[in-house]
Design a protein around this nucleic acid. Structure first.
Lengths: 177, 177
DNA sequence: TGGTACATGTAACATGTTACATGATTAG
DNA sequence: CTAATCATGTAACATGTTACATGTACCA
């Protein structure tokens, strides 16, 4: 029951618990669906955070159902902790793009290999953009989800535009031997 | 001397060590300068990775200099491990945008608070973009660094465009009571 | 000679990842 | 009755963060 500060992962679980009670399994699925595009969390984390939040009195466990399903319900303390977390300034973004390291050190790479990597990465971004756009059409009713999806779309569009200007930027790299 | 796989953080240190030998302190500063915009690493991590890589024979420590400065030098094994890491497919991007959680759950927030948060975030992005653009002017000679910087610029431009379309997207959110 | 920047590192903890172990229910 | 899926969770490890402890050299 020690009071601990919420992290964003725990907070998002509490956010998802504001409606019905959900089991750990449900939470994994729901999180994947609702925030999976911009926030990853694993099964392990979910169960760990649930155990911790139970200890802290932010959620309560209901009686085990059919397959040992255990519904978690948010408490008033949980709502309060969530509201406090939500009203605080969001922490800084975390962006780590391994490809940029590859590019930065690409002089230690055979030229052909870089082109391969870039092509594969570009394709992955294009695929994600297409999936987002398809999703976009089916989200006309939910403004906040649309807003987060739009962020993803903008992000992927920017990535593609960048991929397309890359050859021009890097052409000077190739040493003229 | 157990062989361990490289992680991106260790690899980037090896990348930076391809020129001169550098001390842990130097590496922190150099990393901040060269990859700081898209890859964070702390002092603690640097010393930990250096200790580990020394154990693994990827780098060697030179004789302590003036202020107990210890120059680290990459070994052939280190170069090999780095080359192998670099040629591999980059791992997937890691993007975590806490603000998107804030927005997704913004119905639990007083309306005015959301506007405040958005304004502050937008300003932060605008500031970063300005800094990048200023930097851009002074980078005409280094194509790979320019390429990574351009990624940052594209990313920030996308963010700003998204902030500007946000009010329109979210206006439907406000329940008409 | 006293403060600042340099330079090392450890300790403790928080968070995230991967792999595994266990069993219940359901669908075919 | 058997395979797939649901559902729990632990263990071990990797990575990242924050705070602290220690001392050195330089500069005003």
């Amino acid at each position: 029951m020690t009071v601990r500060g919420l992290n964003a992962t725990a907070a998002s679980l509490l956010g998802l618990l504001h409606g019905d009670s959900l089991t750990g399994w449900d939470l994994v699925a729901t999180a994947q669906d609702r925030i999976g595009n911009f926030w990853t969390l694993t099964q392990s984390q979910v169960y760990r955070e649930l155990a911790r939040m139970t200890e802290d009195g932010l959620v309560t466990v209901g009686a085990p159902g059919p397959r040992d399903r255990k519904p978690y319900t948010i408490t008033d303390a949980g709502r309060h902790a969530f509201a406090e977390w939500l009203a605080g300034a969001p922490t800084h973004d975390q962006i780590r793009v391994p490809l940029l390291l590859t590019i930065l050190f690409s002089d230690h790479l055979e030229p052909g290999r870089l082109a391969e990597i870039l092509a594969a990465e570009r394709a992955a971004h294009a695929g994600r953009l297409a999936a987002y756009r398809e999703h976009e059409g089916r989200l006309t009713d939910d403004p906040v989800r649309l807003a987060t999806l739009r962020f993803g779309i903008r992000h992927e569009e920017a990535a593609l535009a960048w991929f397309d200007e890359l050859p021009g930027l890097l052409s000077a790299t190739t040493p003229p031997r």
